[in-house]
Amino acid sequence: MMRAPADILVLAWKDLRLEGRARAALPTMVVGGVLFLVVLAMGGGVDRSGEGAATILWGALLVAAVLGVERGMAIEREGGALAGVLLTPVDRGVVFLAKFAANLTLLAVTALAVSAVGMVLFGLGIGGGTAGFAGAIGLGLVGVAAVGTLFAAVLGGGAGRRGLLVLLVLPLCAPVVVVSGRAAAALAAGGGGPGLGVLVAFDVVYVVGGWLAFEHVVDL
């Protein structure tokens, strides 16, 4: 148990280094997110206020998250790396937390890139409360990364299961997105963040739930 934080760091760093070499998930995530923005903008009538910015950003981030976790887990299964990790004398909950940390890092990088593109190309207005806006979106990302990581593992491999991840992850992330979007918009406008406590509660439950459930649900 004492070694758990070190194990998490080692495994998460391993995933990030692999991503740095293979560039398998991050480019897909960023391009997927930006494509979402472009397609939305081509439709016209985009609300560029704080609430609109949060909604648009969340749409792009959900696309990126699903693409990223699915791609990352598929690559690890194809190479048999997941089997190797699961056979190591490390608690499987630790494996979940490491994968969650790696996915969250990739999502945070994607969020920065997509937000920058959104602000430059579409003039999305976040207003004066940039830190609050980013904080609310960041809290939401924690929940999304936890759910995405867990279900990418739960679904297992196999061509028949592709496409199911998006169906499972989107509705589970919807409450987090609703609360995070509203809080981000309110904070961007300089007000208080309604429901931030709820968001933290969701994050804790999703992360702890994933940590506890991973051992019972992950399969080679």
Binding site: V147, L172, A174, Y206, D219
Partner: peptide
């Protein structure tokens, strides 16, 4: 909708159990 899309009964039951537990948070 997802239930019948997962062929393996064991995998289907596990996926739906995890999903059902997390869905209740709403």
């Amino acid at each position: 909708v997802v239930r019948p899309l997962i062929g393996s009964p064991q995998r289907r039951a596990v996926v739906c159990a995890v999903y059902g537990v997390m869905a209740f948070l709403d």
